[in-house]
């Protein structure tokens, strides 16, 4: 799996649909500019955003407003394409801890991240997903953040990395942690010093602070460098109910709900 590039509302969703069908999971990214409506006041936007529209009106930070709107439009369009529905037919709602979900559509789990000009969306029919993105060059080293971000085991491992790659390694660990914490609906509530990941050159696994294994085989973790500049990570939970393979692909994600008033006649 690699993140798929989307070039705006007119782009084809076929690659995303195919990936969800074959592996159950897809991560995609797009530029804010490709999804930002020209006019944030246009009447259709309220319908497109639903109850999120109220939040938009409370935002004054312009780049945040843009990312907020663009990311929600991208998420709903991607999910709708995978489900075979219209974006406006889906309601983006939030769990008590703030985690977004498609209300009533638990067969497709979603996650959202944005930074600078980048939007990232994760979709899975296997269970749960969390995604996170950060500029790979963003300075995190030497700001007093390492001690808040890393487990003792990770601190050692980061120091073992050649100096020029150290900051990048810290950004990778950070996005993995955010991705996992978002997948379980916790965001910054989970203390990032309490779980960690394996060093860069290995298959990513979750480790406890002392380096012993953390979450089990039902979790998988991925990191990619996207567009040569962004680190994107995903955490996927799959308890193995069977969201992949030909049998799964034959099962409709959004079965047509028959109108009972028709059969009653």
């Amino acid at each position: 799996m690699r993140p798929l590039r989307n070039r705006g509302p007119a782009d084809s969703w076929l690659p995303v649909r195919r990936e969800v069908e074959s592996s159950g999971t897809s991560v995609l990214y797009a530029a804010v500019a490709d999804w930002l409506p020209d006019d944030l006041e246009r009447p259709g936007l309220a319908a497109a955003l639903g109850r999120d529209h109220k939040r938009l009106l409370e935002m004054n930070h312009v780049p945040n407003r843009s990312r907020f709107v663009a990311s929600r439009l991208l998420l709903k369009s991607a999910a709708a394409a995978v489900l075979g529905a219209e974006p406006d037919e889906l309601e983006l709602a939030y769990k008590p801890g703030g985690r977004p979900h498609l209300r009533g559509v638990d067969q497709l789990d979603v996650s959202l991240s944005h930074t600078e000009e980048l939007l990232v969306v994760g979709l899975t029919r296997n269970g749960r997903i969390g995604v996170d993105a950060e500029n790979a060059g963003r300075r995190m080293l030497g700001l007093g953040t390492e001690r808040q971000v890393c487990t003792p085991y990770e601190l050692e491992a980061v120091l073992a990395v050649p100096r020029e790659r150290r900051n990048g390694e810290l950004v990778r660990l950070w996005t993995l942690k955010e991705a996992y914490s978002k997948a379980i609906g916790q965001g910054l509530r989970f203390r990032f010093t309490e779980f960690g990941f394996t060093p860069e050159d290995r298959q990513v696994q979750m480790l406890r602070p002392d380096g012993t294994p953390g979450a089990g085989w039902e979790w998988s973790f991925h990191s990619w460098l996207v567009d040569d500049s962004y680190m994107v990570s995903a955490a996927v939970y799959d308890p193995g109910f069977g969201g992949r393979g030909p049998a799964a692909a034959a099962r409709p994600l959004l079965p047509v709900v028959p109108d009972p008033r028709l059969s009653a006649r």
């Binding site: 930070h61 945040n64 963003r138 808040q148």
Partner: peptide, 18 residues
Amino acid sequence: HLQHDLGFDSVMLLQLKG
């Protein structure tokens, strides 16, 4: 508002805490 008005993201919050 830290996020909506000032544009704080999670890394900036960490930095602030530090």
